[in-house]
Simulated assay, not measured.
Amino acid sequence: MPRRLSAVIVDDEPMSVDVLRSDLESFGDIEILAAVNRASEALASVPLLKPDVLFLDVELGADSGIELLQTMRAKGLEPSTRVVFYTAFDKYVIDALRSSAFDFLLKPYMPDELYKVMERIRTDFSAGRVAEQNISELTMRMPASSSGRFAIQTVNSLMFLRPSDVLYFEYSGIRRCWSVVLSDLKSHRLRMSIKARDILVLSKSFVKVNSDTILNIDYLSYVENGSLRCVLVPPYDSISIVASRRHFSDLRDALTML
């Protein structure tokens, strides 16, 4: 039987606390140890309560949840505590990642988003892992913002892109990593930890057309019968991308077929 998890909520909005508490209790295996609305209360109680999961709002009145986490860690917050930042403002997400949050939620969250966060936490605990934070892995779970942008970690920088900025992704078997090719035809190598499945969840327009290529089908003009060559819209029509028969069904399913 899965172990019960303990949680503390730190949020200065009573309505948000009530909603999150109710949603967490509905899982049946989560005990809410406390819900506090001030940074000073959290600093005094959380290290002593030693929760498995800490839900921490980024904005706590005049205080910052990100700075509060750093202070709590200095005061002895258990390394095994999984920290989930949640906020109505996606501008804070990258700061949250840099502060080594385990995960994050954007308010108002959908029930399935909270479910996925809790499933990741349960999996982590059941595997007996020590809480480890990896900015590249968390970034790939980052949902699109209200402007449609997403963040992706290259070997040199953290890039903020819209799906329309991306022409395709290509995999190098020699380097064992993916690269993103942008609409300006510049290529940027991604971190080795980024997998095809991480890329595919970023946009419904990203479809794997062969084992080494994920294409933004918004740039697809047509697919040649027989050869399965993917012809892109000008000025990209000279680029040679051929769909494999194995992946052609995925491409077909992603398109409206008449």
Rank of each mutant, 00 (worst) to 15 (best):
M192R: 14
M192Q: 14
M192V: 12
S193I: 14
S193R: 12
I194Y: 02
I194T: 14
I194K: 03
K195R: 15
K195N: 04
K195V: 03
A196I: 03
A196P: 04
A196N: 09
A196Y: 01
R197D: 12
R197W: 02
D198W: 00
I199T: 05
I199W: 03
I199S: 04
I199H: 01
I199R: 04
L200H: 02
L200I: 11
L200P: 02
V201S: 11
V201N: 06
V201E: 09
S203R: 00
K204V: 12
K204T: 13
K204Y: 08
S205H: 10
S205F: 06
S205W: 05
F206M: 05
F206E: 01
F206G: 05
V207M: 01
V207P: 04
V207Y: 03
V207H: 02
V207C: 03
K208L: 10
K208Y: 03
K208D: 04
V209E: 08
V209A: 10
V209K: 01
V209W: 06
N210F: 00
S211D: 12
D212A: 15
T213P: 01
I214M: 07
L215T: 02
L215Q: 01
N216K: 06
N216S: 07
N216T: 07
I217V: 15
I217H: 10
I217F: 01
D218T: 13
D218W: 04
Y219Q: 07
Y219C: 08
Y219A: 09
Y219P: 04
Y219V: 08
L220E: 01
L220R: 06
L220G: 06
S221E: 15
S221L: 14
S221C: 07
Y222E: 13
Y222L: 12
Y222A: 11
Y222N: 14
V223R: 10
E224S: 06
E224H: 08
N225E: 14
N225S: 14
S227R: 12
S227H: 08
S227E: 10
L228I: 03
R229A: 11
C230T: 02
C230S: 05
V231N: 09
V231T: 10
L232N: 07
V233Q: 14
P234K: 09
P234C: 03
P234Q: 06
P235R: 10
P235I: 08
P235K: 08
P235C: 07
P235T: 06
P235A: 05
Y236S: 08
D237R: 07
D237H: 13
I239E: 02
I239Y: 01
I239A: 00
I239L: 15
S240C: 08
S240W: 02
I241V: 14
A243I: 06
A243W: 05
S244P: 00
S244Y: 04
S244A: 02
S244R: 00
R245Q: 11
R245T: 09
R246A: 09
R246Y: 15
R246N: 09
R246M: 06
H247G: 00
H247W: 07
H247V: 04
H247C: 06
F248Y: 15
F248M: 11
S249W: 01
S249A: 12
S249T: 13
D250C: 00
D250F: 03
D250L: 11
L251C: 05
L251S: 05
R252D: 11
R252Q: 13
R252C: 10
R252F: 07
R252L: 15
A254T: 12
A254V: 11
T256W: 10
T256K: 13
T256G: 15
T256L: 14
M257E: 08
M257N: 13
M257S: 10
M257T: 13
M257W: 12
